[in-house]
């Protein structure tokens, strides 16, 4: 038993703690970084970019999308395609959207139980930028509505998901998040 534990510890400490689909992870690190447009983000003029400000009052256009390692996010190219699920319509989400919030849908890997949902709710629910959220176990998505005038970059979302213990596969915003 002691030998086994020593062996396992030594093996695991030499390997990364997170993986999705084993070797595929290595594959997508080798691919050129996907452009923001490749993610299907739709920063159309349907909302007022100028009104979206980060915590440091930076305009929406200055969001650090490049900082999110999109090649690490398990996009279609890695066979991780999730149906492009739209935002889940709960009362809170509909109210937040009516109040001018920005819809965001995050495909999350490994969300299989209510503990997963609780973790996401706790971590994202603490953020002032988040007006409403819902973890949908059927769609494997996190639906967010970002307060009007606030923003949450892809990199920030990725970091928050990691704090909750999960990894994101894709992020959709605006009309695409609404199913458009």
């Amino acid at each position: 038993m002691n030998k086994a534990i020593t062996f396992i510890i030594a093996t695991l400490l030499s390997a990364p703690a997170w993986s999705d689909h084993g070797n595929e992870a290595a594959d997508h690190h080798a691919k050129p970084e996907m452009s923001h447009a490749d993610m299907g983000h739709d920063h159309s003029d349907e909302h007022d970019h100028a009104s979206h400000e980060t915590e440091s009052d930076a305009p929406h256009a200055s969001h650090d999308h490049s900082g999110a390692n999109h090649s690490d996010m398990g996009h279609d190219a890695h066979g991780m395609t999730m149906a492009n699920a739209s935002i889940t319509h709960t009362d809170d989400i509909m109210t937040a959207l009516t109040n001018g919030g920005e819809p965001v849908v995050v495909d999350v890997l490994g969300v299989v139980c209510d503990f997963c949902a609780t973790a996401m709710n706790k971590i994202f629910g603490k953020r002032d930028e988040v007006a409403a959220l819902y973890v949908d176990l059927d769609k494997k998505t996190l639906s967010l509505v970002i307060n009007e005038g606030a923003s949450l970059s892809d990199k920030q979302i990725e970091k928050l998901a990691k704090k909750a213990g999960y990894r994101i596969a894709a992020i959709r915003r605006d009309s695409e998040a609404m199913g458009g």
Binding site: L12, W18, D20, M80, G110, K140
Partner: peptide, 9 residues
Amino acid sequence: LAKRWFGKD
């Protein structure tokens, strides 16, 4: 948590 494997399902 030494390792976590993620998949869609």
